[in-house]
């Protein structure tokens, strides 16, 4: 990982590439995230139903790996899913993983 890669992962995406939060198939909450920074904030605020929906479909990992292009973070989330977390423990640990990664990437820019 170098500064250029960190900068790419932290970029702001277009509307089309943003992550859109749903609570179930076809039910969009109205919340979206177009960067890792806003994604971290949304995870902290998002209702548990939406988090569990996306987490167990693998949507977070897919978006992080394919759109943000952060394979390492996607793998960390995948590993965490193997422990089958639910509710607040899912939210808290997911948030912790994301904040840790975000802080690391951000520190590489300076």
């Amino acid at each position: 990982m170098n500064e250029k890669m960190a900068s790419r992962i932290l970029r702001t995406l277009s509307r089309e590439k943003a992550f859109y939060f749903f609570t179930s198939i076809g039910n969009y909450t109205g919340e979206s995230a177009a960067s890792l920074r806003t994604f971290v904030d949304k995870i902290r605020e998002m209702n548990l139903k939406s988090l569990e929906f996306h987490f167990y479909r693998g949507d977070f990992e897919k978006w992080i790996a394919e759109v943000l292009e952060d394979k390492e973070l996607a793998e960390q989330i995948g590993t965490f899913r193997n422990s089958s977390p639910i509710g607040e423990s899912l939210k808290n640990e997911l948030y912790r993983i994301l904040v840790r990664r975000y802080s690391k990437l951000k520190s590489m820019l300076y």
Binding site: Y20, G26, N27, Y28, G30, S32
Partner: peptide, 25 residues
């Protein structure tokens, strides 16, 4: 269902002005 979700998530939710969506199968 997956195709439906994909369409709504990728083609409807990103449209400017969309506030939220409810879908009934």
């Amino acid at each position: 269902q997956e195709g439906l979700h994909e369409f709504i998530a990728c083609s409807v939710a990103p449209l400017p002005g969309v506030l939220r969506i409810r879908t009934s199968m």
